[in-house]
């Protein structure tokens, strides 16, 4: 086929994408090399804006929170998804369909609304969590979950996990269902218990899905904004500050265009590197 229709087929998508994503990215990179006054570029200052990164303790705190978020996501929703998918795979098609729908429902809820709902559950005065702890006689564990530095980030991660584990179940289920059943039959002949089949057959054969979900989770952990913004806005103090909220505040609240651009570039470099690694690893498989 000639290339003229190909270009015409591509053009509408490409124009829209270039105008509102590619060009702004290039602009952000350019902005980061200028000094700014009141939203107007003053002069080229090279890497001067970048030197501020070293002394910006909020930036390093935000980065560490993003990293903690990745680890927590790998530790909880991913593992839960794997376990639930492995259990579900043995059940009837009807059960599989109903349960995976239930697990998936939270993902259809906008993160803004998820944040509002869970903000309530964590409410120190009449939230469900403290209420439940009280009922079980564990009232001493009750706390102001989102208002204390020690618990805020982990509490929010439980909300993130709530919207994510169903996705993991669905991805893992698809992969488990394509595993050759004769492998399990052979193991059953040998009298292997459930957990050993899980450990020796299911988990190793799902390496690819785990890699995909792990990288997906890592990238999402760098990108998320809504959940933090609607609940804690990065607080208390900077306990839940992440890169995206730091960009937002630096740009809209502080009005420091140059440094907001620097932070955006850092964010972009991290997500693009992660996705480059993801593609290399997943294609190599």
């Amino acid at each position: 086929m000639t290339s003229r229709p190909a270009i015409l087929f591509l053009l509408p998508a490409l124009l829209l994408y270039a105008a509102f994503v590619v060009v702004p990215i290039l602009q952000v990179v350019a902005y980061s090399f200028f000094s700014w006054d009141n939203g107007i570029a003053q002069e080229f200052v090279g890497l001067a804006n970048y030197t501020h990164l070293g002394s910006d303790s909020v930036f390093w705190a935000a980065l560490s929170h993003n990293a903690i978020w990745v680890v927590l996501t790998l530790a909880f929703p991913l593992l839960a998804g794997l376990l639930l998918a492995a259990i579900l795979a043995d059940r009837s098609p009807r059960t599989i369909q109903v349960m995976s729908a239930i697990y998936f429902i939270p993902r259809t809820i906008p993160l803004v609304v998820a944040g509002i709902i869970w903000g309530w559950i964590y409410n120190p005065l009449f939230g469900l969590l403290n209420y439940g702890l009280d009922m079980m006689g564990l009232g001493s564990l009750a706390g102001a979950w989102l208002a204390e530095e020690s618990t805020a980030l982990v509490s929010l991660n439980v909300v993130g996990a709530w919207t994510f584990f169903g996705f993991c179940v669905v991805i893992y289920l698809g992969a488990i269902q394509s595993i050759d059943p004769s492998l399990y039959e052979a193991a059953e002949v040998d009298g292997a218990p459930w957990w050993r089949k899980f450990r020796d057959i299911t988990v190793p054969l799902l390496n690819n899905s785990t890699l995909f979900l792990g990288l997906y989770a890592a990238i999402e952990a760098m990108r998320f904004f809504d959940l933090i913004w609607v609940t804690t806005q990065g607080g208390p103090g900077y306990a839940t500050e992440v890169l995206t909220t730091h960009v937002y505040k630096t740009f809209f609240l502080v009005g420091d265009f140059g440094y907001a651009a620097v932070l955006s570039v850092v964010l972009l470099v991290i997500v693009l590197s992660l996705s480059a690694i993801a593609f290399r690893l997943l294609r190599a498989k």
């Binding site: 994408y17 994503v21 590619v22 060009v23 702004p24 990215i25 602009q27 952000v28 902005y31 990238i219 760098m222 990108r223 904004f225 890169l243 995206t244 960009v247 937002y248 740009f251 265009f257 907001a260 651009a261 955006s264 964010l267 972009l268 997500v271 693009l272 992660l274 996705s275 593609f279």
Partner: peptide
């Protein structure tokens, strides 16, 4: 493909 992961907050400045 590169755009798959671009977060909205990273382009909002421009």
């Amino acid at each position: 493909l590169a755009g798959l992961v671009v977060p909205a907050p990273s382009v909002i400045v421009a």
